[in-house]
Design a protein around this nucleic acid. Sequence first.
DNA 1: CACGGCGTACATCGCC
DNA 2: GGCGATGTACGCCGTG
Lengths: 94, 94, 94, 94
Amino acid sequence: MYDADDDQSHVSAPQALTSSSKEKLRQFVARIETLETEKSELAEQLKEVYGEAKSLGFDTKALRAVIRLRKQDANDRAEAEMMLDLYLEAVGEI
Amino acid sequence: MYDADDDQSHVSAPQALTSSSKEKLRQFVARIETLETEKSELAEQLKEVYGEAKSLGFDTKALRAVIRLRKQDANDRAEAEMMLDLYLEAVGEI
Amino acid sequence: MYDADDDQSHVSAPQALTSSSKEKLRQFVARIETLETEKSELAEQLKEVYGEAKSLGFDTKALRAVIRLRKQDANDRAEAEMMLDLYLEAVGEI
Amino acid sequence: MYDADDDQSHVSAPQALTSSSKEKLRQFVARIETLETEKSELAEQLKEVYGEAKSLGFDTKALRAVIRLRKQDANDRAEAEMMLDLYLEAVGEI
DNA sequence: CACGGCGTACATCGCC
DNA sequence: GGCGATGTACGCCGTG
């Protein structure tokens, strides 16, 4: 996208961004980078937690498996709910 | 995990976890799940931001490229900084 | 799905599938699962081939790029062919 | 990878491939392209099957959900098996 | 240090 | 034709 303000044509000719578009773009970049920074920090903390568990003698592989299973269960429940809705709709109950 | 409290041996005898170990395990699981939830929320917000940018006509693929490049630049700068420090230290400037 | 045999109405009344429909459904599921199994096996074999190439010292990323480019070329050639046919037909040469 | 026969150094200097390496490369490309062709054909057939089901009045969305669920169940069983092994190993039973 | 697993990003496809 | 979902590929990290 070359100019979010101007472009009504969908042509691919390069054109400069308006200053308004540039400003919006800057803001998007800033918001994204903030969120990614926070996300990286959480990832960092997760690593630390696993490291701490490991240093206390826990098997991180098994620990990760537990986490994965619990998540999977949650997903399964959500999926089951979805399927129920789908079936109810299929038999005209919605 | 054999038992973070008991096991100093790494032998293969089956043994249950002590209640203390179980409690620690529960806490680790809780901490991890909290962090992962927050991480997912940030991921969600990132998707929303990209979606908003897209709805305003910005090319998200290009936007992602911008983010990636800036990140790379930051890494490069950090690395250069590290090298500089290393050299300064090597010549006794620190 | 209301009933592939019966339903001409698209009304929302709940109704069970006829046994004939159920049988068809089973067959569809079976055919799909067979095809997906075969597809997974091919995917598996592809992984093995890439693994073998890697173990012989080839850069799999470059190898993948080669495959991608050749595929693109093939697509381009097919498209050119189609255009040619279209033009030939347009000038009454077919 | 610049030469699968010669390169013991892992340096990144560009160098020509030996004819032996080139030949191997050609064979890998051929094998990969064969497998990918077959995979695409299966994908094509899958599309046809779903299309046929749809034309007979079946709800493909529900059909896909069924397939997904059955696959998920299989995965769950495999995962459960893995967890069992993991736990058995953790208590020294392997 | 090389490998495999995991999470993420891209592309494709079916649907609307 | 845009959008959402799904399958595939890449990069990163932890591990042996």
